[in-house]
Every structure is written in C-alpha cells, then in structure tokens.
C-alpha cells in the first residue's frame, strides 16, 4: 500500500512539475496522432463507403481485407514500414526512418482500416429500405457516397474516434519506426515504456494520466459532435 501511495505522490508531483520535456512529448503525441487520424480518416472513410456500396463479391474480399487490417498488431505494421524505410530498403533514400514523419505514416496505416471498417459497418447497419431507395434514385457514384456519408454521420464520427483511439494508444509502431529518441521522436506511450523500464513508476504513471486526459478530451469533443448531429436529424 505504501508503495502505491508513494508512486501516486510521485506521479502528481511530476504532473504539476510539467517540465519542458514533458510538454514536448505531449505536443509530439498530439501532432503525430492527430495527423495520422486525419490521413487515416480521409482515406479510410471513403474507402469504407465504397466497399459498403459495392454489391458484388469484390465487396466481400474488401471487407475481409479491412477486417484483417483492423486486427494487425501495431508492431507488425511498424516492422513493415521499417523494412521499407531502412537505409537499403526501397524508400531508404528518403531518410524518413526515426523521424516523426515515419511515425505518422505508421499510424496512418493503422488508422485506415479502422476508419474504413467502422464506416462500412455503419452503412451496412442502415435499413434495407435505405439502400433500395438509394439505388432507386439513380444518382452518380459521387452523390450516392455523399448522401450515404451524411446519412451515417454519427458513424463517421465514431470512425474518427476509433481511429484516434487506436493510434494514440499504440506503442509498437511508433517505437519501431520512431526509435523513442528524446526530444525528437518520443511520444507518451513510448515514454511510458521507457520510464517503466527504468523503474520511474511515478513518471510513468504521470504520463499515463496525461494520455488518458488527452484521449478523454478528444473523445469528449467527438461525442459532442455526435450528439449535436443527432439533434439536427
């Protein structure tokens, strides 16, 4: 018991001490995860819409691919990207390895299937009358997608929330392609791993609390968006 109280005391001390290093870690976490979420949603939501509106076997194949993508372990996605970005790899010349850009790329890979899967699920969850009506309207592919996305707007917000939740909490991918370099590529999750390994439990817990506050803030905003869209139905 004394041990836990001590750790908690250290954690609060660290939180209120909020130094420049911590600020830097928090800032990078926000930038990397938000950028990855935005890229993931921009690609994933239209992809999910397209997949859900297919009527052939192609759709089944895509759905399977999306579902597999949703379950890929982050560390594996990181490893794949690492191999591509390695000095002697196909894109080694870009020199992106161990930079925030590589971290955004890795997390985007994780965000795309989540955003696509949640969007496709929301569209498939509509009553059959909705897709029958959509087909009856003889709209262009673009218009169909637009009408569908507006229709499942709360589902799209859920896709954003799920994508952000996945990337902000993962540690494997950013660790492998970012390298957890102090002042350069260290984010909250990799910092927690680092502090835990060094038995700085108070600092680790402080970082964890920050991560929770960050996730709660973003999700609170998204929930507000969801409820707001519900009122305008």
């Amino acid at each position: 018991m004394d041990f836990l109280v001590e750790v908690l005391g250290d954690a609060l001390e660290a939180l209120f001490g909020f130094g420049s290093e911590l600020r830097q870690v928090l800032g990078l976490t926000l930038v990397v995860s938000l950028l990855a979420t935005v890229f993931g949603v921009v690609v994933g939501v239209p992809l999910g819409t397209w997949v859900a509106l297919r009527r052939t076997r192609v759709r089944t194949a895509w759905l399977v691919a999306v579902n597999i993508g949703m379950g890929v372990p982050p560390v594996l996605a990181g490893l794949a990207l690492l191999l591509v970005l390695w000095d002697t790899g196909p894109l080694g010349g870009l020199g992106l390895l161990f930079t925030p850009a590589a971290m955004v790329a890795a997390q985007t890979m994780l965000a795309i299937p989540i955003a696509a899967g949640v969007t496709a699920g929301a569209i498939k969850g509509l009553p059959p009358a909705a897709s029958e009506q959509l087909a009856a309207l003889a709209l262009s592919g673009w218009e169909r997608g637009r009408v569908m996305l507006v229709e499942v707007w709360p589902g799209v917000v859920a896709a954003v929330a799920a994508a952000f939740g996945r990337v902000v909490s993962e540690v494997g991918a950013v660790l492998v392609v970012g390298g957890n370099i102090v002042g350069e590529t260290r984010v909250l999750t990799t910092a927690i791993v680092q502090e835990t390994r060094q038995a700085n439990f108070g600092d680790a817990l402080a970082l964890g609390l920050l991560l929770i506050i960050l996730a709660a803030a973003v999700n609170g905003f998204l929930t507000w968006m969801q409820l707001r869209s519900g009122r305008h139905e």
């Binding site: 009358a129 909705a130 029958e132 009506q133 003889a138 507006v150």
Partner: peptide, 21 residues
C-alpha cells in the same frame, strides 16, 4: 422512375430529399 414500397428519406430537409437525382 421507381418508388419503393417504403420510401426512405435521408438526413436533411424534405426538400433536399425531393431534389435528389
């Protein structure tokens, strides 16, 4: 032109729905 058995109106105004297509 086809009117399904259960016409489905999408999120938006009635006018927006009527103008679709």
């Amino acid at each position: 032109a086809y009117l399904p058995q259960r016409p489905y109106l999408f999120r938006g105004s009635a006018g927006f729905n009527m103008g679709l297509g």
